[in-house]
Each structure stands twice: as C-alpha cells, then as structure tokens.
C-alpha cells in the first residue's frame, strides 16, 4: 500500500526525519510511537502531501503522492483541527465530506450509525457548530469523517488524546472492527492503546526508525522498557 523510499525532511538545515526504507502492506494496522518531536506528525504530513520532502518519496499504490492526487479517492485522515470546518455543524460536515465520495445524505447517516456509541449523544442533533464543541468531541467528529466513505487507507494522529476513558475503549473497539482490507495508520503516546490495536509498531526517535516490531505478548513490556530511560 505505502512505500517510503529514502525519505527525509529538514527545517532550516536541521534534519527532523530520515526514513531510508519503510513499507506498509495493504490491510496492516500500523502504529507509530515516539516522544514529542520524534517526527510522527511530520511523517504523516509527508504521507498526505501536506509538506514537501527534502529528499526521497512516498508512494501510495505505486503512485508518488505529490504527482497525482489519486490517493485522495481512497484515503481518510485526521491529524488536527485544520481537518475540520469549524463553522459547520457536524451533520453538515459529514454530509459535505460524504458528498465528495458521492454519498448522499441517507448514506452518510446510515454510516454514522456505528458511531452512535462513540458519539454518546453529544455530536449529532445538538445544533452546535464544530468550533463550539469540546476538544474531545471535535476529535470524534474528525475520526468519524476520516472513516467516512470506507477509505482503504486511514491515517489518524493521536486519536486517543483528549478522549475520555470510555470513548478510548469504544474507539479501540471501532478500530478493531474495521475490515481486514483497510490499512490503518495510528500514532499515539499511549503505548497500551497502540499495542492493543496495531499489528505492527514502529518507534521513532529524533526522526529515525529505532524499532520495527510485530505486536506480540511482550511487546508492551518491551516498549515500556525502551521508553523508561
């Protein structure tokens, strides 16, 4: 699904990310962990063609992301609030996003049914603009919109942050229930959540891949040992 080759990003001559080779096959649930400034968001931004690589390339389905925008047809992403349209109500936002996938109103609301538990009655039908929702509820809107239109590739930056414990558990449930053909990329500071949800975990430190492991029984301990310096 995703091939990264010789990718690097620099700000003011200072290299912040350097990934010589990384491949994420279709259907994999991929977790990215690392401390602040490790380059998680930078990697996702490069993947989504939001920033320009200093060197190298990212390919999605063998097409360079900065050459064709074909990948947009099967990708859903939520990195931060600039993926939300603050002056729309959640309903309008979902409808607008759905319309880009050719979904009509009833398709969209049928799709949203599975989020009922996560939304917990605080999102839909509240007559509030997204800008007036709490941070956690904004995050829920963003995550649901990223999954709208059944994209093959889903990219979520820190999906668990700002969510209350109940919502975190429900979100994990939702992610696990996604069909096996979906490639899901998640970054998180929460080692436990990420090991529960992801098949493969990559640890970034200072822009470099330090560990690349397939989740097993002892993965959480291994990660905790690594981070408790």
């Amino acid at each position: 699904m995703i091939q990264i080759h010789n990718l690097s990003k620099a700000y003011g001559g200072h290299i912040v990310l350097q990934v010589p080779e990384l491949e994420i096959p279709t259907g994999q649930s991929f977790g990215l962990v690392g401390n602040n400034g490790a380059g998680k968001t930078t990697l996702f931004s490069l993947l989504l063609d939001l920033i320009q690589p200093y060197q190298g390339e990212v390919r999605i389905n063998d097409i360079r992301v900065n050459e064709s925008s074909e990948w947009k047809d099967f990708t859903g992403a939520f990195l931060d609030e600039s993926f939300l349209i603050g002056f729309q109500t959640p309903e309008e936002y979902f409808e607008f996003t759905g319309s880009l996938f050719g979904l009509n109103r009833s398709d969209v609301f049928q799709f949203l049914e599975r989020f009922e538990v996560l939304f917990n009655g605080e999102i839909l039908g509240k007559r509030k603009y997204i800008r007036d929702l709490s941070k956690g509820n904004q995050k829920k809107v963003g995550i649901a919109a990223a999954l709208l239109g059944s994209p093959e590739l889903v990219v979520l930056d820190e999906p668990f942050a700002n969510l209350d414990p109940t919502s975190q558990i429900r979100l994990k449930q939702l992610i696990r229930e996604l069909d096996d053909q979906k490639t899901v990329l998640i970054s998180s500071h929460d080692l436990m959540h990420v090991t529960e949800v992801c098949e493969r975990i990559v640890v970034l430190e200072k822009g470099e891949v330090i560990k690349d492991i397939f989740t097993q029984e002892d993965t959480l301990q291994e990660l905790e040992a690594y981070f408790s310096v």
Binding site: L48, L50, D80, E81, S82, F83, L84, I85, G86
Partner: peptide, 8 residues
Amino acid sequence: SFFDYLRV
C-alpha cells in the same frame, strides 16, 4: 483554518 482538509 481548514486548509489541510482542502489539501487532503
């Protein structure tokens, strides 16, 4: 404020 949305 929603430029990333338009980009992605």
